[in-house]
Design a protein around this nucleic acid. Structure first.
Lengths: 236, 236
DNA sequence: ACAAAAGTGTTCCCGATACACCCATGC
DNA sequence: GCATGGGTGTATCGGGAACACTTTTGT
């Protein structure tokens, strides 16, 4: 016996919801699909699973194809399995979301691929159920980022507290008190202050911080409660 | 064009991690696998996806085959996609977890299937990567139950506060203060006290409660913080 | 009357919030 | 010297945790 006979084999795709942050607003990386059906329509970056790779490997390969980046934070989100989601042929999609530092690769963008950043709020109509996937990813982002230090993955290695605050404000579409936010953040012990300052945002300059890798790893699963009243921001 | 040519189609299975609670300890429902390979070894309840069903439908179908139950709380957990996880043929598995009221079906158990409840802590060696799946499910259970009123799905429609407390204590392998626990629980507004009492556990008897369906639905996503220091119970 | 479990109330403390001022610098 | 954004300190409030006694009833 070398195969399970009589069972149906199914096409399996991996689609990536890729978030980036440019310092101002939260963005989503989309491509113009290069093949039929729906050629030239906007789409998430995706591809079919190959025979000898794991799902995580497939997701990493696909991300690399588009962005050239490796070692990026990715997480499996959910399988989308409605039988009719792809009109050509029944295809399961394993959705991953990924956070990248937008500046790390902005250059090679739209060379080989027609890729473009869209503000998350102004995403165009996407093929198949990709708009669903994006919405789901946005919910999951809000959910997880309220509890875990996830959003740091969207920032460069060195960042300032005003930057990370702006990012949180963007994700939750709200305004936070800078005194409380900064206290809460620093009290986690996650941040190591650098001597250098970022003079871009103001005359005075804001201190750069780096993550303490040990504490970051340690506290990643802890419930840190970055956002007051997080439930107010969760879709029911 | 009616198919994506040149792409590999893959076998996809759904495996269910089924939790139950008998009032004493948390249990896991396992079956003896009925076909090769690994015939007669203990296994999660699973099956192959069929062409015209969604993933959720597949999970529900498989659960029904084993337990006869419908309308059970199920949630997609994670895809397990290591290429070698099934030695016969590459098979993806979509893992679901399910919570059932153990008493609702205890009778028809092990008729058609060799099914058996195992205390979660004493689960036997399972086929393939099923022990991994169980471990992952246990982590997810602890994670979610610390925040959301999930464990009620394991209890009958009417239950007492000592019962639900025992369940929490079981899941987290700890002891909780009954005064604080009961106050916290009642303050959510989730519970409606019945007039009737359960005289089984004590002479005095404990009031039965039911869930308020509206509030339950409403607050399911809220962060309710049932467990003090939840991070202490999460695997890093 | 006594054992065994259910039910309830109070104090204390810490963490969360609201809120206002000084600091450094480029122009 | 003034405008701009960065950084810090304090009082208050509420929720969470620690903790002990009374109630019910079957035996």
């Amino acid at each position: 016996m070398t195969r399970y006979s009589k069972q149906t084999r199914i096409l399996v795709a991996v689609d990536c919801i890729i978030f980036g942050f440019d310092g101002e607003i939260l963005k989503l990386l989309l491509i113009q699909r290069g093949f039929e059906p729906e050629k030239n329509k906007w789409s998430l970056m995706g591809g079919f699973m190959e025979p000898n790779e794991s799902t995580d490997e497939a997701a990493a390969r696909i991300l690399k194809q588009l962005t050239g980046l490796e070692g990026v934070y990715m997480e499996q989100m959910q399988v989308f399995g409605e039988p009719q989601r792809d009109p050509i042929e029944r295809t399961l999609s394993i959705a991953y979301f990924a956070f990248i530092d937008i500046h790390k690769y902005e250059k090679q963008l739209s060379d080989d691929y027609h890729a473009e950043w869209f503000p998350l709020k102004e995403a165009p109509k996407l093929i198949f159920d990709h708009n669903n996937m994006v919405e789901k990813a946005r919910e999951m982002l809000r959910y997880k980022a309220a509890l875990h230090p996830l959003l740091f993955e969207l920032l460069p290695e060195k960042f300032t507290i005003p930057q990370i605050q702006t990012l949180y404000e963007n994700v939750y579409d709200t305004v936070l008190d800078k005194r409380n936010f900064s206290r809460k953040l620093l009290s986690t012990g996650l941040l190591i202050r650098q001597d250098e300052k970022d003079k871009g945002g103001s005359k005075k300059g804001a201190y750069y911080y780096k993550l303490d890798p040990a504490i970051y790893k340690d506290k990643f699963q802890a419930f840190l409660n970055f956002i007051p009243n997080p439930q107010a921001f969760l879709t029911a």
